[in-house]
Amino acid sequence: MSATTQDLVHFFSYRTGVSIELPVGFESVTEDESSVTYAVLDEDGAAGPRDPQMHLQVVGEFEEDATDADRTAAVRALADGFAGVDGELLGRADRLVDEEPTATVTLRRPDADLLLHLTAAAHGSRLLSIVASTSEEAMLSSYDDAVASIRFIDL
Results as ranks from 00 to 15, higher is better:
Arg92Trp: 00
Ser142Pro: 02
Gly91Ile: 00
Asp144Phe: 06
Val131Trp: 09
Thr104Asn: 01
Ala93His: 15
Gly81Tyr: 03
Asp44Pro: 02
Val24Tyr: 11
Leu128Tyr: 00
Leu96Ala: 06
Ala77Val: 07
Thr119Pro: 12
Thr134Ala: 00
Phe152Arg: 03
Val24Glu: 12
Phe82Ser: 03
Leu115Gly: 01
Arg109Glu: 05
Val40Asn: 02
Leu22Ile: 14
Glu31Ser: 13
Leu107Cys: 02
Glu31Trp: 04
Val105Ala: 04
Pro49Ser: 13
Asp98Ala: 05
Leu118Gln: 07
Leu114Thr: 01
Val85Cys: 02
Leu41Lys: 03
Arg92Thr: 06
Pro49Phe: 12
Leu128Thr: 02
Leu56Gly: 09
Leu78Thr: 07
Asp111Gln: 11
Val105Gln: 01
Gly87Val: 06
Ala120Asp: 03
Thr134Leu: 05
Pro101His: 09
Asp86Thr: 14
Pro23Trp: 15
Ala148Gly: 05
Gln57Cys: 13
Glu61Trp: 07
Leu128His: 00
Ala122Pro: 02
Glu63Thr: 08
Ala112Lys: 12
Asp65Cys: 12
Ala47Gln: 03
Ala146Cys: 15
Thr104Cys: 04
Thr37Leu: 14
Arg71Trp: 04
Glu137Leu: 14
Leu116Lys: 00
Ala112Trp: 03
Ser133Thr: 04
Leu89Val: 10
Leu115His: 03
Val29Leu: 15
Arg50Phe: 13
Leu140Cys: 01
Pro110Thr: 03
Glu99Arg: 09
Glu88Cys: 01
Ala46Ser: 08
Met139Ser: 11
Leu78Val: 14
Tyr38Glu: 07
Ala112Arg: 13
Leu107Tyr: 00
Glu21Thr: 04
Phe26Gln: 09
Ala83Glu: 02
Pro110Met: 00
His55Cys: 07
Ser142Lys: 03
Tyr38Trp: 10
Ala83Asn: 01
Gln53Arg: 11
Arg109Gly: 12
Ala69Ser: 10
Val97Asp: 02
Leu115Asn: 00
Leu127Pro: 10
Glu136Ala: 12
Ser133Leu: 15
Val85Asp: 05
Glu33Asn: 14
Asp86Trp: 10
Ala120Thr: 00
Thr106Ile: 01
Ala47Thr: 13
Met139Arg: 15
Ala138Cys: 05
Val36Trp: 04
Glu88Met: 07
Ser135Cys: 10
Asp144Gln: 11
Asp144Lys: 07
Asp144Trp: 06
Asp32Thr: 11
Arg71Asn: 13
Arg151Leu: 15
Pro49Val: 08
Ser35His: 05
Ala93Ser: 11
Ala122Cys: 05
